[in-house]
């Protein structure tokens, strides 16, 4: 048996390299910039004093990343429903004597049996090359759909027309009081 005592010299070499990788996620910011959200209705004609709202949208995402949706709600005796009617007009409902869902449907289809519901036309505009169109989808229902078309910043402007949609204002059917509709511009991740 033999024992060998000795030392072994070892030499090493280490190389350190750092690669920085940032995974930037698509992001979006929507904010209301200016608006006129209150007004009055002339009881003899049904015309209103004018309402509008503008929303600023900034995003590094695309139409493949987000659905950009302008939705609306109106409160009925059966809960909230979409406040958009034909051609994207906006329905307003009495906040005390709530309209029925059937009155809402009647107003949306151009009928004249729609107590406590008044509809006004809506005009939408948006900064080029973005686009906005009224549509109805399985996911969002009746809504205005915005396409950013690879643009990163723009302004969506909504103007409520002053004259009521035909057959939706009646001094005998529509009670005095406050009428309300809520509009929300949302970016939904896909």
């Amino acid at each position: 048996m033999s024992v060998l005592f000795g030392t072994v010299k070892a030499y090493g070499y280490a190389e350190v390299e750092q690669s920085v990788t940032t995974d930037v996620q698509p992001s979006v910011a929507i904010s209301k910039t200016v608006s006129q959200e209150t007004g009055s209705i002339n009881p003899t004609t049904g015309t209103n004093t004018g309402l509008n709202a503008s929303f600023k949208i900034q995003t590094n995402g695309t139409d493949e990343n987000y659905d950009f949706i302008v939705g609306s709600t109106i409160l009925t005796t059966d809960g909230e429903v979409s406040a958009y009617g034909q051609n994207g007009c906006l329905l307003f409902g009495n906040t005390v004597s709530l309209p029925t869902k059937s009155a809402i449907e009647n107003a949306k289809t151009g009928g004249n049996n729609n107590s406590n519901v008044i509809a006004y036309p809506v005009t939408m505009s948006i900064t080029n090359p973005m686009s906005v169109d009224f549509t109805s989808s399985a996911t969002y229902g009746e809504c205005w759909s915005v396409k950013v078309n690879n643009s990163q910043e723009g302004t969506l402007s909504q103007t409520i027309g002053q004259n009521p949609v035909n057959n939706t204002y009646s001094i005998g059917q529509d009670e005095a009081g406050a009428y309300r509709a809520t509009v929300t511009f949302t970016a939904v991740s896909k």
Partner: peptide, 9 residues
Amino acid sequence: DTAVYTLNL
């Protein structure tokens, strides 16, 4: 963001 429109008749 949201706009709540209110008209008084």
